[in-house]
Design a protein around this nucleic acid. Structure first.
Lengths: 66, 66
DNA sequence: CCTTTATGCAATATATATTTTACATAAAGT
DNA sequence: ACTTTATGTAAAATATATATTGCATAAAGG
């Protein structure tokens, strides 16, 4: 399922998928696929995303499923 | 690095690594290696662990690194 | 129009999470 | 002593996250 909270947090920081990806050290595709809910990212990647966007795991990745 | 919070939460529920693994649908080794900090688990696995132990992502997996 | 930017999509390659099977050991119970 | 339970460890196999490259399109600006 789509992760809209991630997309919103990214846009709030005025970052494109490519810019966020570069800050984190992954590729644009990885960010795009996570936002689309087509990837099951690793914990460390989730943590890197959270820290870059000043959010916590619960704020970006909790209860997006079910 | 070791994830002691996960181990404590598991013991609080009086579950062995094997019992927790079975509830979640993974192997005993996977749980053991996550507790030892030798695995970088997937987000969905983290969420399954949290729900089984009645915790959130932040409670079990946030800031165990750095 | 033309160029850039942002995003989605897809095929192939690579890294790594997870499984499977098995062995070792320490602690607890009988 | 013997058996069971819990845990750590390891090698090989499998599944999947992630990278790489490239193409397509829509929106915005010159």
């Amino acid at each position: 399922m789509k992760n809209l909270k991630l997309k919103v947090a990214r846009v709030e920081h005025d970052l494109s998928q490519a810019e966020l990806a570069e800050k984190i050290g992954v590729t644009r595709q990885t960010i795009g696929l996570i936002e689309q809910g087509k990837y099951n990212p690793s914990l460390q990647l989730c943590i890197s995303i959270c820290k870059t966007l000043n959010k916590t795991l619960d704020e970006l990745f909790w209860q997006e499923e079910d």
